[in-house]
């Protein structure tokens, strides 16, 4: 497979401190008509290349804001965000973004939705065609390439969105509650597949989620955030093997410890408010 060596061949890693994502003393304040809202305060994070990091926290604690900062869609009010050692000043092209809603173009088939990424970036067609086939196979979309979004189930739509986000082999993949709208069973399947895809691609992943089980099963580290103004409550190292069978992982003591700790943190912080 040619997909496994994306992060190792990034030349710009050498010039930086080595981190894929660095967030340094970041605060975000929104000014509304009535009052100023602090969405994030004093957030500092360091994510190594190839890591899978989950972010959990109560609704409105600024989890999505954090992803917007990393992608450059939003500027911090203070502090610094660096991607591969470079200051993030505007929308970054070297990321992949997956939203909760698949955000597919309804007039395009699955394949042509994935190709949107290539068209916007003006990537050479011949090279892209093979890559699309590869991704379609990897995400289990084979047979659905020519279906329109309204003919696809929620899980299938999200797979298309994932392919689109991975097409240009981004060193960092940002996922904002990608499976939030799926039913529990489909969600578990998608978790297993995302874990496999992450291992095949070696991409750094930042995943925002509401599901504690999802966060722990997928990640190396889980960042637990406090309610607004959001800041990092605790970073939990997930002490699970790299090879994770879904059912078996659920019954591991380490899994129970991690999820229990996160539940405590989230419960404690919400009742204290």
């Amino acid at each position: 497979m040619t997909v496994g060596n994306t992060t190792t061949q990034r030349p710009d890693d050498a010039t930086s401190t080595g981190a894929a994502v660095e967030i340094d003393q970041v605060a975000v304040r929104f000014r509304t008509k009535k009052k100023d809202v602090t969405a994030l305060r004093d957030v500092s994070l360091r994510i190594e290349p190839g890591e899978f990091v989950s972010i959990v926290g109560a609704s409105g604690c600024g989890k999505s804001t954090l992803l917007k900062l990393v992608s450059g869609l939003l500027r911090p009010s203070s502090g610094q965000v660096r991607l591969h050692g470079e200051d993030v000043r505007g929308p970054r092209r070297d990321i992949g973004y997956v939203f909760q809603r698949a955000a597919l173009l309804e007039w395009r088939t699955a394949r042509r939705n994935i190709l949107l990424q290539a068209e916007m970036r003006r990537l050479p067609k011949a090279q892209v065609r093979q890559r699309v086939d590869e991704l379609i196979e990897m995400t289990g979309l084979t047979g659905f390439e020519d279906a329109y979004p309204n003919e696809l189930s929620g899980g299938m739509q999200q797979r298309v969105a994932l392919c689109r986000a991975l097409l240009h082999r981004p060193p960092v993949l940002l996922m904002d509650e990608p499976f939030g709208a799926l039913d529990a069973l489909t969600r578990e399947q998608m978790n297993v597949e995302l874990r496999r895809i992450w291992r095949e691609t070696g991409t750094t992943v930042l995943l925002v989620t509401h599901s504690i089980a999802e966060a722990v099963y997928l990640a190396n580290r889980v960042i637990v955030m406090t309610p607004r103004p959001g800041t990092v409550a605790e970073v939990i190292d997930v002490d699970l093997p790299v090879e994770r069978d879904y059912g078996q992982t659920m019954s591991e003591p380490a899994f129970a410890r991690a999820t229990g700790r996160i539940r405590d943190l989230l419960g404690a912080t919400t009742t204290a408010e």
């Binding site: 917007k68 992608s71 869609l73 929308p91 970054r92 092209r93 990321i95 992949g96 973004y97 939203f99 809603r101 955000a103 173009l105 007039w107 949107l116 990424q117 068209e119 916007m120 970036r121």
Partner: peptide
């Protein structure tokens, strides 16, 4: 237009012209 579509377009490095012809106008 769905604001997420426009954000997505920005992360793809699309210019305003591309965003208009490929996303905004067809939508």
């Amino acid at each position: 237009i769905d604001p997420e579509m426009l954000q997505l377009s920005a992360t793809m490095g699309a210019g305003p012209g591309q965003t208009f012809t490929k996303i905004r106008f067809p939508a």
